[in-house]
Every structure is written in structure tokens, then in C-alpha cells.
């Protein structure tokens, strides 16, 4: 589900980044900066745990395939939504920078799709109410599966929407959405069952890890979270709608004609006329033959630059 930079356009990436940054700010306040209850090291090693858990696949019953866990609901069940959000975000950042999963500019969107949708939406709205206040395995399993499905489906919805608004894929929105939603329904069920498997093991062997929290208080807090999310949803929805309307042909960038302006001034004004338009075509290819020669020429320029740098800048080997 990690979006690569290739699949996203600048405005979409920036909106995703802004929303995620704002929520991270809130998380920073919610997870108290001065905390001496051991939450800081717990969040740290839990992030590392998610990586380790993703290294081992489980067999998906009834099929020949196997899957691994994403971990949003699991983290939220242990750490609470905001700490889980921070933890999952750190996992996504490390996946992006070290394991090359997902793009750097797409990071904001990836945080939104994977961390926000599971820990801040699916957990408080689905898992929490279903889980109940007392340990019960059927409820735990139901809550895990339902929350994982909801979280991943929301994520899949967001991924398809962001990609299509970005106008990089020619896939019709409906086709793409159907495809993504059905794939992630399956993935969500597996994720849910796997989450339930881990949670039941913990509940059996070390119940205090999950059930030490004061539930009456967390339910009261739930209300404020729901309100927070209603607001967030409006903002997110509004942002997307704004993008879609300011760039109405974003969904079908094919409308853009290749014979667009060749003038610099027009390009500049198009850049200034709103982020939606930045997308707009400034690649001006006068005719077919010429554009081919343009590509060839560009490649030649590159080879030349490469040769020059190879000649003049020697890579100084870092010792590691």
C-alpha cells in the first residue's frame, strides 16, 4: 500500500503532508512530552517489533498464499491511538528512508493512508466500542477483524483517490477503486485475524499488558476523538474536493492537449494560478518527430553531464 513518488503529484503530496504534519503535532501534545511511565522506550521497541513481525509470514488459511501484518490496530490496542500513530509514523519514515518503501514526498500521504486510518480512525471508532471493557476472546477477534478491515479499506480508498487525483495513472477511478477495495478487503481480514492471534496470546499470558488501562476514562476520551475526527474528515474531504475542483481535468489529464503553449510567460502564469494548475502541462512537444528528438537529445545531455561529473567529482568512499 506504500505509495511511491512516481504515483503522486505535487499538490496531492503537499496536502497529504500538511494533514499528517498537523496530526503529528496533535499527537505530540497528546503523548505528553514529559512522560516517565516507560511509554517512550515502549513505543521505540514496539516500532522495531513491527519490523520484525513483518519479516515472518503466516499462511492464509484456505489459500496457498501468505501475508504479513501492518500492525496499526495491534499498536493502538497496546499503546492507545496517539502513541500508536506516532509509532507507526516512525515505522513508515524508516521504511521510506532505509528500506525504500514508499516515496519521500509521498510520505505524508502514506502516513495518512496507513497510520491515520488505522490508529486514529478505525481503532477508536470500531475497535474500542467492539472490544468491550472485559476480556472476551470472541469480542477481541471480532473487534480486531472489523477494525482492521475498516482501517485498510479506508486506506485503500485514500490510496486510489490520491493516485487518481494525481493524474498519473490512466486507470478509471471506478476500476481502480474496485480493484483496491476488493484486494484490501482480503488483506484486511487476514490482518484482523493475525492481530487477533497476537492479542489473544497476550491476553492469555500477560493480560495486564492490554487491560491495565482505565476504560471508563478512555471511553469518555473517545467522544472527543470522534468529534476531532469528524472535523478532520471534513477538512480532508474538503481538501480533496478543492483539489478536484481546482483541477477538474485532473482525473482525465488526457484532455490536456500536447499543442499547449510554448511561451515561457504562460508557463509561469500557469504555475502562479494555483497549485492545481502546477500539474498542468508545460511539456510542449511541437510535433511527433521533434518530441522524439527531444527525448534523444535530453538523454544525450544527461550522458554528457554524467561523463563530466564522473571525470571531475570522485566519490569519496564513506568508510561504511
Amino acid at each position: 500500500m506504500h505509495l511511491a513518488d512516481a504515483l503522486i503529484s505535487t499538490p496531492v503530496a503537499l496536502v497529504g503532508g500538511a494533514i499528517s504534519a498537523a496530526l503529528l503535532g496533535v499527537a505530540g501534545v497528546k503523548v505528553k512530552k514529559k512522560d516517565n511511565s516507560g511509554l517512550i522506550p515502549l513505543m521505540g521497541v514496539m516500532g522495531a517489533f513491527i519490523f520484525a513481525a513483518q519479516m515472518v509470514n503466516f499462511a492464509i488459511p484456505g489459500t496457498g498464499s501468505s501475508g504479513h501484518i501492518v500492525g496499526g490496530i495491534l499498536l493502538a490496542a497496546i499503546l492507545g491511538p496517539w502513541a500508536a500513530f506516532l509509532t507507526l509514523t516512525s515505522v513508515l519514515i524508516i521504511q521510506c528512508l532505509i528500506f525504500a518503501d514508499g516515496g519521500l514526498l509521498a510520505l505524508g500521504c502514506n502516513i495518512l493512508n496507513m497510520a491515520v486510518m488505522t490508529t486514529l480512525v478505525a481503532y477508536p471508532l470500531v475497535f474500542k466500542p467492539l472490544e468491550g471493557t472485559k476480556l472476551s476472546f470472541p469480542r477481541l477477534i471480532a473487534a480486531s477483524v472489523a477494525a482492521s478491515v475498516v482501517g485498510l479499506e479506508l486506506g485503500a480508498f485514500a490510496v486510489s483517490t490520491e493516485t487518481v487525483i494525481s493524474g498519473v495513472t490512466a486507470l478509471p477511478y471506478k476500476t481502480f477503486l474496485t480493484l483496491m477495495l476488493s484486494i484490501h478487503l482480503a488483506i484486511g481480514i487476514c490482518e484482523g485475524v493475525a492481530t487477533a492471534a497476537i492479542l489473544s496470546f497476550i491476553a492469555k499470558n500477560r493480560p495486564e499488558i492490554i487491560y491495565k488501562k482505565n476504560h471508563t476514562r478512555s471511553i469518555r476520551r473517545l467522544k472527543s476523538i470522534i468529534i476531532g475526527f469528524a472535523i478532520a474528515t471534513v477538512i480532508i474531504g474538503g481538501g480533496i474536493a478543492f483539489l478536484a475542483s481546482s483541477n477538474p481535468d485532473g482525473l482525465e489529464w488526457s484532455i490536456q492537449q500536447i499543442t499547449g503553449s510554448t511561451e515561457l510567460s504562460e508557463s509561469v502564469s500557469s504555475l502562479a494560478s494555483g497549485c492545481g494548475e502546477v500539474q498542468g502541462n508545460t511539456a510542449i512537444l511541437p510535433d511527433y518527430e521533434n518530441s522524439l528528438s527531444g527525448i534523444i537529445g535530453s538523454i544525450m545531455v544527461l550522458v554528457f553531464v554524467w561523463a563530466l561529473t564522473a571525470l571531475f567529482i570522485k566519490p569519496k568512499k564513506s568508510s561504511q
Partner: peptide
């Protein structure tokens, strides 16, 4: 990433 999808060169 703001370059149009057709602007390969």
C-alpha cells in the same frame, strides 16, 4: 513531480 505525465524529456 509537478512535471506533466507526458513530459518525458
Amino acid at each position: 513531480l509537478s512535471v506533466s505525465p507526458t513530459g518525458i524529456s
